[in-house]
């Protein structure tokens, strides 16, 4: 019996990876086409965003703040938040937009979300590696002191972002009002995402509350991984893990509910 279900699990895994692969290629072609640099466009947007904001900060604040490079600091904050914001905006109304693909039974609605998020994730990672490599050459970006910690932070941040997408996607199908509140909410949460500061710069009482935010925990991990002993970081990796699990369970249940009532033309 257990062997039987293991074989089924393997089949299911095979089908799902195939479907997600096909969906990603399809998405890349529809979004970026085959002309000029093609799918490399996925890293252009995060690059531009982080690059321009970093330049603005560099001009207005000078080369260093709290002893670390302003450009590197801004980039380390902006690339993850672009991933989060793009992930969210791409997951709205994704089920109805791709409805015609549900004619093929092996495609599940979660595959739409996964394929889109993986594309955003790859785009951000590529942009990050690209810009960091260039800046390291010019000595404006630190060589990561603990690359493992940095990557764990980025991964936790991404997983939490994805778990939020799992909730937003079905909610946006249930009610159109949700869609109208999302841009404002993602904007408001920027200050609470750890983008502009380290927790060691804020008042200890405030810090305790801030540590409830999964984004801040992830961000502190990434920055500690980058700068190491140059900075003090406060984080608890269990925070993003637990929050992600809660959001994922809630989101998957909502997805299941929405799939049952989804009307497809």
């Amino acid at each position: 019996m257990s062997k039987f279900s293991l074989a089924r699990l393997r089949d299911g895994w095979g089908t799902q990876t195939r479907v997600i692969h096909a969906l990603m290629i399809r998405e890349l072609i529809t979004r970026f086409g085959r002309e000029n640099i093609g799918f490399l466009w996925i890293m252009v947007e995060p690059l531009l965003f982080a690059g321009i904001v970093a330049t603005l900060w560099r001009v207005s604040k000078g080369p260093e703040e709290h002893g670390i490079s302003v450009i590197a600091f801004v980039i380390s904050g902006y690339i993850p938040i672009t991933l989060f914001r793009h992930g969210i905006s791409r997951s709205q109304a994704v089920f109805t937009a791709n409805g015609s693909l549900l004619y093929h039974r092996q495609i599940k609605i979660i595959d739409f979300l996964l394929s889109r998020f993986i594309i955003e994730f790859l785009g951000s990672s590529m942009a990050y590696i690209f810009i960091a490599s260039i800046l390291i050459v010019f000595d404006t970006f630190p060589i990561p002191s603990d690359i493992g910690l940095f990557m764990s932070g980025f991964l936790l941040y991404s997983i939490f972002s994805f778990s939020v997408c799992l909730v937003i996607a079905p909610l946006s199908e249930i009610s159109e009002t949700v869609e109208k509140f999302v841009p404002v909410t993602t904007y408001i949460m920027i200050p609470f995402s750890g983008l502009f500061y380290m927790l060691s710069w804020v008042h200890p009482t405030l810090r305790e509350y801030m540590l409830f935010s999964p984004f801040i925990n992830g961000m502190e991990m990434m920055r500690k991984g980058l700068w190491g002993d140059q900075i003090t970081a406060y984080y608890n990796p269990w925070n993003p893990i637990i929050f992600s699990m809660i959001f994922a369970v809630f989101g998957l249940a909502l997805c299941r509910h929405v799939r049952r009532t989804l009307t497809i033309e």
């Binding site: 195939r18 096909a22 290629i25 495609i107």
Partner: peptide, 11 residues
Amino acid sequence: DNARFIARIYQ
């Protein structure tokens, strides 16, 4: 492209 997509998902 659609044919390619179908070929992929139906193996």
